[in-house]
Design a protein around this nucleic acid. Sequence first.
DNA 1: TTGTACGCGTTATCAC
DNA 2: GTGATAACGCGTACAA
Lengths: 321, 321
Amino acid sequence: MAGVSVATVSHVMNNTGRFSKETELKVKQVIKDSGFVFNNAARSLKSSSSHTIGLILPNINNPFFANIASIVESYTFEHDYALFVCNTNNSADKEKQYFKKLDSMQVDGIIVISCQKEIVDDIVQRNIPIILIDRTPTNNMNLTIIASDAEEGIYQETKTLINKGCRNLVFISSFLSTYTNSNRSNSFIKALKESNIEINDEQIIHLPQGESIITTETAIVEYINSGNTIDGIICTSDNQAIGAIAGLKQLGLKVPEDVKIFGFDNTLQSQISTPTISTIERYPTIIGQTAAEVLMDSINKKEVNPYYEIKCSIIERQSTN
Amino acid sequence: MAGVSVATVSHVMNNTGRFSKETELKVKQVIKDSGFVFNNAARSLKSSSSHTIGLILPNINNPFFANIASIVESYTFEHDYALFVCNTNNSADKEKQYFKKLDSMQVDGIIVISCQKEIVDDIVQRNIPIILIDRTPTNNMNLTIIASDAEEGIYQETKTLINKGCRNLVFISSFLSTYTNSNRSNSFIKALKESNIEINDEQIIHLPQGESIITTETAIVEYINSGNTIDGIICTSDNQAIGAIAGLKQLGLKVPEDVKIFGFDNTLQSQISTPTISTIERYPTIIGQTAAEVLMDSINKKEVNPYYEIKCSIIERQSTN
DNA sequence: TTGTACGCGTTATCAC
DNA sequence: GTGATAACGCGTACAA
């Protein structure tokens, strides 16, 4: 349409090679007028770079993950990349299928919050950067890791409750991702042992599948009705804390007077609950931002560290006062 | 590697043409052993179908949108499609850029929760189906629309409060998407007028930019301190309702005794707040599911209706009792 | 039942 | 400063 060859058009579009100012203007005008949009599939085929990245996470409904997704999206958009979002629903199988799918989509890199215990290193055929958030695979791979020190947070929480005089502590473990949960419960156990407080298996409560407010409420009521006493609860989500408070209320126990409770993730719910809930802030925005930056640097062949750690903060509110 | 031509491999992979059982097994074995992943860019270039779809929405951090995204993802995954998720942050400009980007990515279809008043019909060059959620553009286009009757919900809420004796009502309008907000405030106004209740502009409170709990709290306090009286509030988010309750509490007013309040979207917060908050359930899951189904049908050249409406329900809790 | 050859839209190389 | 052309990997028509 501009009366020039495809080669020249390509040069103008990508600002490569040489062309006259006149040609450039004419080509750009035609592109604008005709609404021409280049075919990314062809570009990708030729250049083996698709200008897309993949984000694999358990569930976009979880605000913690949604926060990460949001910041990753905003960073990738700035860099003219498009983002595939992949929910695994904590299924290792679905996660593997998505790795393969993203591979076939020629994504230039992947950020993953994995639900697998081990990530095998031939998970993608092409040699693209993979950033792992908040999981440290037992096998050693050439992946970049963005770690959150939530285990340290759990440890500090437990210590805090012990210092406040709690001796009958309970740890609530979600039914999902046993890998993460076992690391976290180990921090709980470690803190108790260091203070020479005895602990038995029942004190680690594994929730059944279901809505965690309800399941926690039920679990706490059952636990106490079975003759156990409680004066402190460490939760692995704020919703669990809300459920726990409801369960205790049902039994006439007061928070924080009778039982002190820690939640997890500093969600809006923890801030507006009555009582307000002490919790851990994991800074998902910083985690996501770091992951996106590191991935983009990796894609652009810059040197990146193999390991980044994002510190948590404990936020004390009414539920542990 | 299997000792056959590429054509035969292609036939086996796509189950097209004819080939011997023996060849099929051999080829499949080699594919498995070598971890071969086909190049979607090439397939897409050839077939002009990428097996991807795009989802454009204001912000994945909003649970309502996250719910929609989640169900759309799950549906598309089932159909072996990958999903681009695009946040517009309510910027019409970013939305347009994403339309173009998705077009160049050769997506097979787009679901959009738009923040534009009008969607121009040459927004994408290629003739692909576009599903519009919860927005009815003023210009007439050949788009499929999934509508939520939230306006009717607002109308019913207002009527409900009037029937309960409220006469000094206020409508809280978020600072975003004026298009949607004006439709909603019109429903509020309509209900008041039908009951011959006078209304002035001040009763429609437009929040400034910022975290809606805080901004609403401030706005309500200011409104009352300016000498206005309130006995009912219609909010356009549950967080606004939480902020309103906080503001009223600050001034010594009780909910629902002194002021009755409706929230929006039946979030977890509305369920756990004290008092619990009456709200509207818009069924994001059904909206998302419908959008995904209709889009997939459209892509597969099935006939679909141009318009679907998902009904809302009003949920009454303590805040309006 | 299998193989050959072409074309999809783009970029890179090289000739003019 | 510009244009012709090969190559990217896949799907398919047609030939064998």
